[in-house]
Amino acid sequence: MKKRKARTGCDENVNTLLLEDALATLASGEAVVLAGGTDVYPGLQDRPAPAPMLDISRIAELKGIEKTSDGWKIGAGTSWTELIRADLPAVFDGLKCAARQTGSVQIQNAATVAGNLCNASPAADGVPPLLALNASLSIASARGTRLVSLPGFITAVRQTTLKPDELVTAIVVPEHELNALSVFHKLGSRSYLVISVAMLAVTVVPDCDGRIRDVRIAVGACSPVAQRLPELEAALYDLHLVEDDLSAALQPEHLQCLKPIDDVRGSAAYRLEAVQAMISRSLREVAEKFAEVKRGI
């Protein structure tokens, strides 16, 4: 990548920052990356904005959602609203459901899906559905590009493996079979603008008969980083969506990987109990969706 001086400020080219210029800027020194601003500004707590900030909302290359040979690429500049309005396969329904419950319309119009991952809050609404979609992140720097799985990206509360000179450029969701289904549940103490007490996302790939061929279940706000439930997923494998009692597969030890805390939003014990109910409901919902599709509704 050839070095170019980053364009700065509000000159006539301000709306068209090039990715390579942005990466050059990051390579030349640390900057706070600004996208939708919905995490950056609250984090300031009334202090003035830091300089320098790198506003990536102006990078055209980060816009838009497209289908590629690697799967669906959600550009890092994609807002929740753009995701909601995008024409996507049914397997994205869970993610769209999370999008509609993220903050408020004002937040959804500004905040980016990728920013939600980079912020790495334990209660990030985007993480469970994207875990359940087997998503990866496409990361670029002046040194090159890399692809990292979502579990390999968020490592702890508000910590990611993103290096100071790197930028997330896209979220990549592998293409699923057409009959793959997903659901999402968010539990909060009020409607709108609420930080989740617990979240649950499920993706199921059934065969055409209804037997589970792939299933991914992710729980949010019940551990420092949202977790998949691999043991539960294994227990569900090969069960029939309609004929089997899916809830019966759930065993308490399946949730041992969760480490919920007591906080103002709810107790740890409550979170664990709620997650179990949410799992049962989500599986039932998936089964109903499958039955509906099967009936041709």
């Binding site: 301000v14 500004y41 900030m53």
Partner: peptide, 26 residues
């Protein structure tokens, strides 16, 4: 100043956003 109340809502190119979460340059 945190996007929690929406009192500062303005339309930017027709989309409702919180002006307190929007950088002037944006």
């Amino acid at each position: 100043n945190a996007g929690d109340c929406g009192a500062c809502t303005v339309l930017v190119n027709g989309l409702a956003v919180c002006a307190c979460l929007t950088a002037a340059s944006q």
